[in-house]
Structures are given as structure tokens and as C-alpha cells.
Nucleic acid binder design. Sequence first.
DNA 1: AAGTGGTCTAGACCACCGA
DNA 2: CGGTGGTCTAGACCACTTA
Lengths: 245, 245
Amino acid sequence: MNGRAAAAAPADGRARWALIAQSLRDRIVAGEWRAGDAIPAESALARSHGVALGTMRAAIESLSDEGLLERVQGRGTFVRAGIAGAGLSRFFRWGDGGDALPQSRVLSVRTVAASAEVARALGAQAKAPVLRLRRHRVRERRVLLVETIWLPLPAFAALETLAPADFGPLLYPLFARRCGIVVHRAVDDIAFHALDGRTAATLGLDPGDPGVRIARRAYDLAGCAVEYRITCGDAREFRYRAEVR
Amino acid sequence: MNGRAAAAAPADGRARWALIAQSLRDRIVAGEWRAGDAIPAESALARSHGVALGTMRAAIESLSDEGLLERVQGRGTFVRAGIAGAGLSRFFRWGDGGDALPQSRVLSVRTVAASAEVARALGAQAKAPVLRLRRHRVRERRVLLVETIWLPLPAFAALETLAPADFGPLLYPLFARRCGIVVHRAVDDIAFHALDGRTAATLGLDPGDPGVRIARRAYDLAGCAVEYRITCGDAREFRYRAEVR
DNA sequence: AAGTGGTCTAGACCACCGA
DNA sequence: CGGTGGTCTAGACCACTTA
């Protein structure tokens, strides 16, 4: 002891910056700051939490690494608006062609009872009501992808009465606008399977032709499952690059 | 100015910690510290570079994020020994079954002239001599994967005279032991395609059955391509999980 | 006990941004 | 210009590992 800066960890097992990060995380999830909003300045937060600037920076940095916040020099620190660059098109050869991305065409919107698989993915009760969308991704009159999307109710009730034609090309911004739900994280499970006759015909392929099936589970800021989606396409168009180190 | 701590960035565009990180990176690549070695303590490095501890920590942290270093509390900071958890088995359903991983069986080792494709992948001259390995991954007398591996010469000359039976189950540790080459990063390109007759027969499938083809390019610490590998397997056994946020 | 990385403080100056 | 995040200092104590 020397009477100067006290310093040092709180000895309760968790670092001070981690406790502060958790408190900020809670406030973001609770909606105190909305997606796109700036949170208070580092210096203000450090003062209000009674810690040094460096400690607050460590807390904010961990949330930034986590993808919850985004720092912009000279402007501030912002709540991220949702996942970026995560379109399923990235799995296909036509995904980054100089050409435009395929169009979106919602075919049907229906309220159905969740199957066991859907209920499990959404963390809902079996047979709970869910919203089911069928959608095609189309380019030049050719169907490239066939999608079925399940959304939990009542969270997505605002979409129940929306006409198929009124779903825009991008679903996640629509979720945010109409339902206040921000998709923050998604997990894609990729597998190969033989196409069933109907899907093959839709894609202009022969039954039994090789297909890929991507099952996506998407989550909001709080970690709640908000979407389950199955996307089918021509396996021969599939490509993906995985990097390890 | 107040006569105390000078501080602040070097104003040449790059932060001091970034310059120090580059210098440490150079020393690691040059082999001053080998894979698995501990580098000097943070405090010693800070002193010898004439910077504060926090600045040196920032430099080391960036190399740690990069995967070049690994910090262990109470022990030190170590040069990472190579990629971990990057086996190609992770792409297959049998990859993490409770069962043992498949065995490795090297069939042939030959010096050949690089094809255009191989030369491009390895950054070598077309028709340059390269070492070509053919390998099977086998479990319970069933061939699960068929691999062809190209290695640049003369870097891998030590393997030219090695008998197929003397290649162990893991190649990367062998590369390090026999050739002093550490694989630090790899990129896997995944695509589906029809199997050719010979590969299909080897895998116990019918010609035209769906296959998955993984093309791997592996790099050493300095970023030089040190391996090009093509792995073929049964597409129906393929699975992969990609996460985005 | 000695040495390592991990956390923390209380300041300072710098580069960048928008009004 | 004032405010933001980015970099830097020179210390201190803490938790962990090894001998």
C-alpha cells in the first residue's frame, strides 16, 4: 500500500470490466439503446460507473468483439443494427457474380402448428402456432433457391396479415421495421441430400439430382431463436470457403 | 505540455504497438523463436523496446488475436505450434462420432511435374518438381476419403525417400519434425461434384454418385503456400456448420 | 518465493468527426 | 471548434504457475 491508486481486480472471480460489460449488455438487450443508437461516451460511462477510462474501454471492447457494439472513431459507439454479409447467397457460385442478386418472391404466408423439428429449433412448444413463409429466390425466370421459413408467434403477428407481394427483397430489415426484432446471430447447418420431386421440378432439375440443404437458426440480441429456415438449392452450384488457423 | 509523460501516437500513421507487433512478427517468422517456444516476458520486451507495459501488451495481443502467439497466465507467451482443430474430418458426420478417427494410409509418394492448377496453388513455376502423395482415410476396412497431396520441392525433399508406411497418421507434425515446416493457416474450398468412376469405386459408391471435394491450400508462418490437397468423399456424409453475426 | 500474464488507475496527447 | 474514440505512460496490486 502506498496511499495512491488503489487498483486491482475485485477478487470475486470476475474482472471489473467483465461485470460492466454484462451490465451494458443487459441494458442493450432491455432496449435502453436501440439498434443504430449511440451509447454514451466512454468517458461519461467511466465516470458514471466509477472506474478508470481503460477499464470502461475494456468492457466496451469485449462487447465490440462480440458484435454487439461498433466503435467509430470521432463519432461514438453504436449498437449494431444486425448481421451483415450473411446472406445465404454466399454459399452459391452465383452469389458474388458481378450480376445482381436474385429476386425474392414470397409465395404464401400461413399460420400453422409447429412440427416437432420446428418447435425444437424455435424453442417453442410442439404444435404451437407459427408463421410459415414459402419463398423463391429467382433470377431471369429461373428459380435458384426454394425456402421455407418459420417464425414464432405472437412475436411476428404483424406479418400474419401482410400480403405476399408486400414482403420486400430482404426479410431482416422487415422484421426490424414491422416487428421490432433485430437478427443478431445466425447458425447455418449445411448438408447434402437428394431433392424430392417437387423441389427438383421447381428448380428445373431431375428428381434425385444432388441438392444442398441449409438449415438456418437465427437469434435476436437476447439470444432467443426468432427464425428457422430451410433453404434448398442445386448442389452443383454450391461453393464455400472455410478458413482455419 | 506539462513536463510529465510524453505519450501519444507517433503520427507517422501507424500506432507504436502496431510497429512493435510487426517487428515481433518478423522475428518469429525469421525463426528467432520456434514453434512452442516462449518469447520474453512482457515487461522485458517493454523495457527493451523502450515503451510502457500497456503498449507492449497491445502489440502482443494483436499477434495473439492473429493466432501467431498464445498467452498463458502465469507461464508466459508462446509461439503457436500450428493450426489446431482443423482436420478435414470436421466436415463429415463421422468426424466427431464417439468413435476413433479414421486411419491414414499413404499409398504412394512420387516426384512429379506440377500441373498448372497445382503450380498456381503452390505459387510455383508450371512443371516445377513437386512431391505428390496419394492417401486414403480408412475406417473398418472402408475407405472414407481419397486424398491427393502436393508439396513443393525442395522444401519437402526430406520426405522424398520416406516409405509410404513411415508416414504417420498426422501429416502436419511430420512436416514440422522432418522438414521444419509449420502449417499455420489453411483455406478449404468446398464444392459438390459427381465422382469419377475410379474414386467412386474406391469409396464403395456408384459412378456418378454425389461427392464432395475439398481443396485445401495450407500456409506457413511467413504466408508461403506449403501444401495443396484435394480430398474427395461421399457427399451424403458431409455436414458443416457456419456461424455469422 | 520468484516470475508470469491479467487487471486497474489517473492522468496525457493525438486523430478524427460533425456542426 | 468541442466531442468522440485511439494511443500512450508509469506506475500498482492480483491470480496463477513453477520450482
